[in-house]
């Protein structure tokens, strides 16, 4: 038994060392892969590659609606879109914090807002993007909402068991010199797609009497902190409610009260708030590919309007 225990200890130590080494290899490769469509932006953030004066942040509606190119052409200031797919403000703030830690401070932040803005964080949505970046700080920040368990943080290689092919993708991309393209330009991508009613139809089917969006007080407090942080650091914050198709907006019972919160926040903190949720574009399906997202045609028009309005703010 002594011989077995001794060998077992040696074998376990070897396995642990190799597992950590392998995890480092996989994580390094994964960050440069396109296994998750969000990896490229995370890579740029952590490698301090973003030198932007204008930062756009928000959910998927941010990276689909706000073109950094349109802003750069007009204001001659470098811009970057930090929009993060399917995530509410807590995760947007996490991305912003990482951005601030590794990159230069921006002069302006265009914050995309919508009715889901004050929801709880949703770590399970596109959780692959967090896999190579899991650390204690992330664990502590999202302790109560985490899709990941303690094993993911503390047992080497375990985190890859949530998803098929991640480890192989990491190993195969290890020797890449730069991250693989995800088709976005500085975090932005417009889609030339036609209207698809599935999203709104299934939403109506699920919620025949309309839907009340949840409001999380902690997220609200976090956003207030963020406003103060921007003030302190002399960053001008601009809130923008980008177009949503009317067919979906009408289904949200507490839409007005959420919009009023943005209005109040802007008044109380002297922040500019641009609301495009009721412009004529919003009632025409020709400018949307689904009820939440404009298509390339809509985005082009929206960005022209936005840039024109921002001329009064961005100098």
């Amino acid at each position: 038994m002594k011989k077995f225990v001794l060998k077992l200890i040696l074998f376990t130590i070897t396995i642990i060392i190799l597992a950590y080494a392998l995890q480092w290899f996989i994580d390094t490769g994964l960050k440069k892969s396109n296994y998750s469509p969000e990896y490229k932006e995370w890579y740029e953030i952590y490698k301090s590659n973003i030198k932007a004066d204008i930062i756009i942040q928000g959910s998927s509606r941010s990276w689909v609606h706000f073109s950094p190119k349109a802003l750069e052409d007009e204001f001659h200031l470098p811009a970057y879109n930090l929009g993060i797919n399917g995530q509410q403000f807590p995760l947007q703030k996490w991305r912003f914090d990482m951005y601030m830690r590794y990159n230069k401070k921006p002069r302006y932040i265009i914050q995309s807002v919508d009715v889901n803005f004050f929801n709880n964080p949703n770590i399970s949505y596109d959780f692959n993007q967090f896999i190579p970046y899991l650390n204690n700080e992330f664990e502590n920040r999202f302790k109560n909402h985490s899709f990941f368990t303690e094993l993911d943080f503390n047992l080497p290689l375990y985190k890859y068991t949530h998803t098929d092919g991640a480890a192989a993708s990491g190993l195969l991309n290890f020797f890449n010199k730069s991250p693989r393209s995800n088709g976005k330009y500085k975090g932005f991508k417009a889609y030339a797609k036609n209207w698809n009613a599935n999203l709104v139809d299934s939403f109506k089917l699920k919620n025949p009497k309309g839907f009340r969006v949840s409001f999380d007080n902690t997220t609200y407090a976090l956003f207030n902190q963020f406003i103060q942080q921007c003030k302190k650091q002399n960053i001008e914050l601009i809130l923008v409610y980008s177009p949503v198709h009317a067919s979906l907006q009408n289904q949200i019972i507490n839409r007005d009260s959420i919009k009023n919160i943005f209005l109040e926040l802007s008044k109380n903190n002297n922040i500019k708030y641009l609301d495009y949720s009721e412009i004529p574009l919003c009632s025409d399906t020709a400018y949307f590919y689904n009820a939440n997202h404009m298509n390339a045609k809509g985005v082009e028009i929206f960005n022209k309007i936005l840039v024109s309005d921002l001329k009064k703010i961005i100098k």
């Binding site: 597992a19 392998l22 996989i26 290689l157 375990y158 890859y160 068991t161 480890a167 192989a168």
Partner: peptide, 8 residues
Amino acid sequence: IFAIILLG
């Protein structure tokens, strides 16, 4: 062991 963890 690694095949089980990584390729499973």
